[in-house]
């Protein structure tokens, strides 16, 4: 299995902790697989919780009308890259 970068692992921990994914270990999330629908199986309410946690931790808000959204939520890797670009703290 592909190893996560240290920042990807940090985001994976936030994800597991925020969404109470008790049976998933952060380091075991496949970085390229979809987070929503098939893959990790997250739903829209998970997306909202995640967005709230991201805003608290990294100081920026995910917007619903962002054209990049599909890409941002596509995988752990894409999400981590987006956070690295947008973070204010």
């Amino acid at each position: 299995m592909e190893a996560l970068s240290s920042f990807e692992l940090e985001v994976a921990r936030l994800l597991v902790e925020t969404l109470h994914l008790e049976d998933i270990k952060p380091e075991e999330i496949p970085p390229e697989e979809p987070l929503f629908g098939e893959g990790l199986g997250l739903d829209s309410i998970d997306a909202l919780e995640l967005a709230l946690a991201i805003s608290k931790t990294y100081g920026f808000q995910l917007r619903s009308d962002d054209k990049e959204n599909r890409r941002v939520f596509a995988s752990l890797r894409a999400l981590s890259q987006h956070i690295e670009q947008q973070r204010t703290h």
Binding site: L35, F36, L42, D43, S44, I45, A47, L48, A51, L62, R63, S64, D65, D66, N69, R70, F73
Partner: peptide
């Protein structure tokens, strides 16, 4: 309903 961004839209 049913898209990842649905509830972000609700939040806004």
């Amino acid at each position: 309903i049913g898209r990842p961004e649905t509830l972000l839209q609700v939040q806004e």
